[in-house]
Design a binder for these strands. Structure first.
Length: 494
RNA sequence: GCCCCCGUCGUCUAGCGGCCUAGGACGUCGCCCUCUCACGGCGGUAACGCCGGUUCAAAUCCGGUCGGGGGUACCA
């Protein structure tokens, strides 16, 4: 399976979302690529929660992320709710670990205490006319006197990492070699003045402690990579890290225009797609297409096929725009891959939510549904489209309503005369079957009234199903039954 | 400003020096099927940002340029 020099079964990757806000498509796409990569190589997936930001964390978000991951089927082997040898897996519970690492780092020459305020740094930068933003290294070589003076002022230091001189080159797993001159990478803070560790510290520390071998993340983190690589040298020196992971930066998922899909954009939220009735496998298939292709002439595939074929070298570094239309088309393809029984199964929660059937459905409802779904399954592209197509069959006569717009358009005077003729033609039918209904109506309307089919059946459809759009009319009437069908034709006249 | 990334149809992409008068998918347009819708079928539309270089040969390699994006925090 594994070849020399390529990732082997020792691959360890991680999901590390922070529970702030609702899960984003970019987050899911990144998770998917990590998942596919790890599964392809028989590796291990660690799930940890980066909940260091006390201000923005929420348990709702935490739950939403786990819920989403389970729905999508993005499994993991170690971490949140699973445990493992490197826990705890919530950063909020790892304070002692970070404090210890920070203390050891502070005792080394890799860091130094910095007493500067942002204002002071900015003032110095302006005075110097420097083009490089960020910290200027002022506190790098503080004398004991200077230090004492700051402390006498009541200042508390942040711990800063001392970037080495020279350049840092790494081989990005999707982009190839990337080099940064460290003069453009300022010394960065690892902790706040109050001692709280920052993301810059905890993310690499956890990767180190959890033995992460491959870090696949968003392109937005590309420019922080030299800092992490430099930090890893320090972590290795103090015995916290064994090795520096390999990094791969996945392309952005963009929204409309040229902006990165932002949290404020409703299309960015994964819940939306779930609510609309996307299939997890359909959504994931589409997400996979954002930066990866299984073949030149094919874009519908299963997750198993993706795992089989996925290689990081094939990931396209270009940013990709999220295209709802295509996402829906891919989803529709997956819908057509399901059996009617499977579609029925998946549609059930949507029907229950809309009150079309009980939860769980009654025996009678289940029976009707089994008859109706073959008509519906092939004409919906998302699960949430089902209730509107089916409710006319399940609603009782007292609760039956018609779409006002469709009524206005199709049940005008001529429309009602068509309905009347239909009522007359069907009233005496001996056998109530799709074929006999169709024959009777065609005879009465097409031949009798010389109407064009679409003109003839439109009003009948609205009368019986309440909508201009419905499953096939004659089949629908058979399922509805003679009594209710006739009663609806009748009520459409009044 | 500075640093980094990116650049093939409207969109997602295939392409890794000759198979390319550039392929597929979504979209879009036209037609067919048809009781609505959806499906399905057929056909059309449409791209290698630009300029140099390397080479017998470049969408593919190199340089530049232009354009887009991101990063420049005691956020993550």
């Amino acid at each position: 399976m594994s070849t020399p020099g390529s990732p082997s079964d020792s691959v360890r990757v991680r999901y590390c979302p922070s529970p702030t806000g609702s899960p984003h498509v970019g987050l899911a796409r990144t998770a998917l690529f990590n998942w596919a990569f790890a599964r392809h190589h028989g590796g291990t997936i660690v799930f940890r929660m980066e909940d260091t930001d006390k201000e923005r964390n929420s348990s709702e978000s935490y739950d939403a992320i786990l819920d989403l991951w389970r729905w999508l089927g993005l499994t993991w082997d170690e971490g949140i709710e699973k445990g493992g040898p490197h826990g705890p897996y919530r950063q909020s519970e790892r304070g002692d670990i970070y404090a210890d690492v920070l203390a050891r780092l502070r005792a080394s020459s890799y860091t130094y205490d910095c007493f500067c305020t942002n204002e002071e740094v900015e003032a110095r930068r302006k005075a110097r006319g420097s083009k490089v933003m960020g910290y200027d290294g002022f506190c790098r070589e503080l004398s004991t006197d200077q230090r004492a003076a700051f402390e006498a002022e009541g200042r508390a230091p942040v711990v800063r990492f001392r970037m080495p001189d020279g350049e840092i080159t790494f081989t990005d797993l999707v982009r190839g070699d990337i080099t940064f001159q460290t003069e453009f990478v300022p010394d960065f803070a690892l902790s706040r003045a109050n001692g709280d560790p920052l993301y810059t510290l905890v993310n690499p520390v956890d990767d180190a402690l959890m033995g992460i071998t491959h870090v696949l993340r968003g392109e937005d983190l590309l420019s922080s990579t030299p800092r992490q690589i430099a930090l890893f040298e320090g972590l290795k020196a103090i015995g916290v890290a064994q090795a520096t992971p390999a990094y791969g930066h996945l392309p952005y998922v963009m929204g409309e225009g040229n902006k990165k899909l932002s949290k404020r954009d409703p299309e960015a939220h994964m819940e939306l797609y779930r609510e609309q009735g996307f299939l997890p496998e359909g959504l994931l298939n589409y997400l996979a297409l954002l930066g990866w292709a299984i073949a030149g002439d094919r874009d519908v595939f299963s997750l198993d096929e993706m795992v089989e074929a996925f290689e990081l070298a094939d990931v396209n570094p270009n940013p990709a725009r999220f295209d709802l239309k295509k996402a829906e088309a891919i989803n529709a393809s997956h819908m057509r891959l399901l059996s009617v029984e499977e579609v029925t199964e998946r549609v059930l929660p949507f029907l229950a939510k809309e009150g079309v059937v009980a939860d769980p459905p009654t025996e009678e409802e289940a029976r009707l549904l089994a008859q109706a779904m073959p008509l519906v399954a092939e004409r919906i592209n998302k699960l949430a489209e089902a209730p509107a197509m089916l409710d006319f069959l399940f609603v009782d006569e007292a609760g039956f309503t018609r779409d006002p717009d469709d009524v206005a358009e199709l049940l005008d005077e001529t429309g009602r005369s068509v309905v009347q003729a239909s009522y007359d033609a069907l009233g005496g039918l001996e056998e109530w079957t799709t074929a006999s209904i169709e024959e009777a109506l065609r005879t009465a309307l097409i031949e009798g009234l010389s109407l064009k089919p679409r003109v003839a059946f439109g009003p009948v459809r609205v009368a019986v199903t309440g909508r201009r759009i419905s499953p096939p009319l004659f089949e629908s009437m058979e399922l509805l039954g003679r009594e209710r069908s006739l009663s609806r034709l009748q009520s459409a006249l009044g």
